[in-house]
């Protein structure tokens, strides 16, 4: 059974006004338990709208959303419980920090769940460890942390709710390469250690290529492609047609193939490209010698 499933999900903003906008149309997707899914698409392709339906922040204009097989809007009053099971980290989450100490801020979600003090403490420390925040930082005001630390504290705040599904909307936006790699690494680790389902929304193809196991491509409010990462990147031409820039190594492979070299299927990380090209070049070198 998929952990999240949508059936014919559509959402229209400001219906009945001059500002009416259909953001997503007739989306039916299944997300399996334990997946590390990347969602890519242009700004305005509906990625953020889609994921805000997964935790019930937005209510479908039509269609249904299921969490572990149950319609999340069956009992609208219980929607908060859905939000505890599907944790959503917004874009620039550091802008939502507000408590006196980082510890208290991370504890905000778990306290809203009504957990007891010991359990909250356990979860806060665990989450802080996952994002690499040291104990002395927990005592500090969140506003005294560095940019990267703030971002990680905010992510920990959602991780501490220990949701079944963790969704991160552009978690690396605005970070430098070091901050980006740290966070992507921590997300992968978290996913592997807990087996949590993780959904990563991004417009960076490189981030998705490096991190995700499956990829969902959105285009103008609909699903354009959905499959294993390798499968999606094997259709790099289509991705470029949508206007999504594929990683440079993928482009190199496409061009080599266009020139008639048998380099195999598309690589999308430098590591893969290296591993595929090296035998070909070595073989040649040896044959020529």
């Amino acid at each position: 059974m998929p952990v999240i499933e949508t059936q014919n999900l559509s959402h229209t903003y400001s219906p009945g006004t001059p500002f009416v906008k259909e953001a997503i149309t007739d989306i039916s997707v299944k997300i399996e338990k334990g997946d590390l899914l990347g969602i890519i698409g242009h700004t305005g392709s509906g990625k953020s709208t889609l994921v805000q339906h997964f935790n019930g922040l937005l209510r479908p204009t039509s269609g249904k959303v299921f969490l572990n097989g149950r319609d999340i809007w069956e009992k609208p009053k219980k929607i908060r419980e859905v939000r505890f099971k599907v944790g959503l980290v917004f874009q620039y989450p550091e802008h939502q920090l507000f408590e006196e100490t980082t510890y208290k801020d991370i504890a905000f979600g778990p306290s809203n769940m009504g957990l007891d003090a010991d359990e909250i403490d356990r979860r806060v420390r665990l989450a802080a460890r996952f994002v690499g925040l040291k104990d002395e930082l927990l005592k500090k005001s969140p506003f005294e942390l560095s940019g990267g630390e703030k971002r990680r504290a905010a992510i920990a705040g959602v991780m501490a709710m220990q949701p079944d599904v963790l969704i991160l909307d552009e978690p690396t936006a605005g970070l430098d390469p070091r901050g980006r790699d740290t966070i992507l690494g921590q997300i992968s680790e978290y996913q592997q250690e807990n087996g949590t389902t993780v959904v990563l929304v991004s417009h960076s193809m490189e981030d998705i290529a490096k991190t995700a196991k499956k990829v969902l491509v959105m285009k103008r409010g609909a699903v354009a492609m959905y499959g294993e990462t390798a499968e999606v990147f094997s259709r790099a031409g289509e991705l470029e047609a949508i206007g999504l820039a594929v990683p440079a190594v993928t482009r190199i492979f496409m061009q080599l193939r266009a020139r008639g070299f048998e380099v195999g299927e598309n690589a999308y990380t430098v590591r893969q490209a290296f591993e595929r090209l090296l035998p070909l070049l070595r073989k040649g070198g040896a044959g020529g010698a």
Binding site: I252, L256, V263, K283, G284
Partner: peptide, 19 residues
């Protein structure tokens, strides 16, 4: 990417010729 393709093509061609 273009420069890389050029450089790799040269080597791959050599290796094909070698085989």
């Amino acid at each position: 990417a273009e420069e890389c393709v050029e450089a790799l093509s040269l080597l791959l061609e050599e290796s094909y010729a070698g085989n």
